[in-house]
Design a binder for these strands. Structure first.
Length: 439
RNA sequence: GUGGCCGUAGCUCAGUCUGGUUAGAGCGCCGGGUUGUGAUCCCGGAGGCCGCGGGUUCAAAUCCCGUCGGCCACCCCA
């Protein structure tokens, strides 16, 4: 007897049981609906790219996290670690056919060879949406509005979209003559929420090596968050870049307000920096108020020169990415009650194999009438079938036995309450629809 | 990638420190409580290479090493 192969999955890679996958697909559906309501169109790109396309586009970290290998034809290839870099390549390659501005969404898996943690995997799904080919602040505003609509549509009440602007940050550093230390400073400031102002202050002085006065000023500044009024406290000196950043944020917040977003949902936060080097303007980060530790569930920003790596044509863009798996991990934690494990609301019971064909006919009729129904495949005892229906989350059970066949009726049982309704068979579909509507 | 904690039935865990009879519980699952009505109750049952491999020992779920996987911190990020 040969040894069996142990069924197992790679670290950071997961299987999805129906209950989880139904939830994931529901999120994708919601995302698609919201994206399309803003005129975004779907695209797809290969999972595998030439390594040179992906290398050096994020940070040093993303290079290290690349799943990279030589394919059977000797090509140096890598799996995409996000959907933005492939978009840049895609746009450079096809922009002539696409025209600008081009708004696309892209739902797909990405791979990062990093260590796993809760809500953090090596293979995970992103729902990206980007607008490229325009520098208009309208697109920056819409990006925030999409994030807002998306989370709202997903039934999330308590979240905050935090906004900052790279130009403002860089201008700020420029005014203080700290441009060379920008990366270190921003990285350090990014940790403000986590380690607190004192730790960041000493880190800035000791590790990054900037003067204490600057460190103090920057930490105070990074702690600012709120409406556009906080911009009055931001001093960018005579930096043109910084002034432009402030101006952009003012226009941004005015637009968000005009769109009628509830105050407090989208706020400025001077502590948001974002790690990816390619952001140049507005940056976005979204935290769930009830679960801030899990990190951002939707982030992004404006990048004004990403596609320049592949083409002479200037392709500015702005967009963000919804982390479906992280979001679902969060939702799971916030409301762990189990959801339905079926995709059809109605269960048709069967307890007489000799009437199989008649059942199949009734069930087919229900489906033609638009009622999703699952026919129990075996003539097991009725109690077991009802139990199955209840456990799976079916809303209704339809029972047709000898009695019902004789007078051409059907019994509809509402599983949650146990209520039974007897209706004529030719009214079954209408009755089901009515009961499902009530439920 | 570095460091820490963990890995026992489908699920949540007890037992591990102080090695020693047939490894337990709850939930779930299956069957029964008479032949067409579940989610409550009663009775019964199935199900465990104690993650995997090696070592120490008369004897290992229990001690040691390795490995795979999970969680956490750093780092970074969805």
């Amino acid at each position: 007897m040969a040894d069996r192969i142990q069924p197992r999955t790679l670290k950071g890679f997961r299987d999805f049981l129906p209950e989880a996958e139904l939830q994931r697909e529901a999120v994708f559906e919601t995302a698609r609906t919201v994206f399309r309501s803003y005129g975004f169109v779907p695209i797809d790109t290969p999972a595998l790219e030439y390594t040179e396309i992906l290398m050096g586009k994020g940070s040093d970290e993303t290079d290290k996290q690349l799943y990279r290998f030589t394919d059977n034809g000797g090509r140096d290839v890598a799996m995409r670690f996000d959907l933005t870099v492939p978009l840049a390549r895609y746009a450079a390659q096809h922009i002539g056919e696409l025209g600008t501005p081009f708004k696309r969404y892209h739902i797909g898996s990405v791979w990062r060879g990093e260590n796993t943690q809760r809500g953090r995997y090596r293979e995970f799904m992103q729902c990206d949406f980007d607008t490229i080919g325009t520098e208009s602040v309208v697109s920056d505003i819409e990006t925030a509005l999409v994030i807002h609509d998306l989370l709202t549509a997903l039934g999330i009440e308590r979240f905050t979209v935090r906004i900052n602007n790279r130009r403002l940050l860089n201008g700020l550093l420029e005014a203080r003559g700290l441009t060379d230390q920008a990366t270190g400073v921003l990285r350090s400031l990014d940790k403000l929420d986590k380690v607190g102002p004192d730790a960041v202050r000493s880190d800035l002085v000791a590790t990054v090596g900037i003067p204490e006065s600057d460190a103090n000023a920057l930490v105070d500044l990074a702690a600012l968050s709120g409406g556009s009024d906080i911009l009055d406290q931001v001093d960018v000196g005579d930096s043109e870049l910084g002034a432009r950043g402030i101006d952009e944020l003012r226009q941004f917040m005015a637009g968000v307000e005009a769109a009628g977003v509830e105050p407090g949902r989208i706020v400025l936060d001077m502590g948001i920096a974002r790690g990816l080097d390619y952001y140049t303007g507005t940056v976005y980060e979204t935290v769930l108020d009830d679960l801030p530790d899990i990190g951002s569930v939707c982030s992004g920003g404006r990048y004004d020169d990403l596609a320049s790596l592949y083409t002479n044509q200037r392709l500015p863009g702005v967009g963000a990415s919804l982390g479906v798996d992280r979001l679902l991990a969060a939702l799971e934690e916030l409301s762990p009650e189990s959801s339905a494990r079926t995709s059809a609301p109605v269960l048709m019971t069967l307890f007489d194999d000799s009437r199989r064909s008649e059942h199949l006919a009734v069930v087919a009729g229900l489906r033609r009438a638009g009622v999703g129904v699952e026919l129990y495949p075996e003539a097991r005892k009725l109690g077991a079938q009802l139990k199955y229906g209840d456990r799976r989350g079916h809303t209704l059970a339809v029972i047709i036995g000898d009695t019902e066949w004789d007078d051409e009726t059907a019994q509809i049982k509402v599983l949650a309450t146990g209520d039974s309704h007897v209706v004529d068979q030719d009214e079954l579909a209408d009755a089901c629809r009515r009961l499902l509507g009530d439920a």
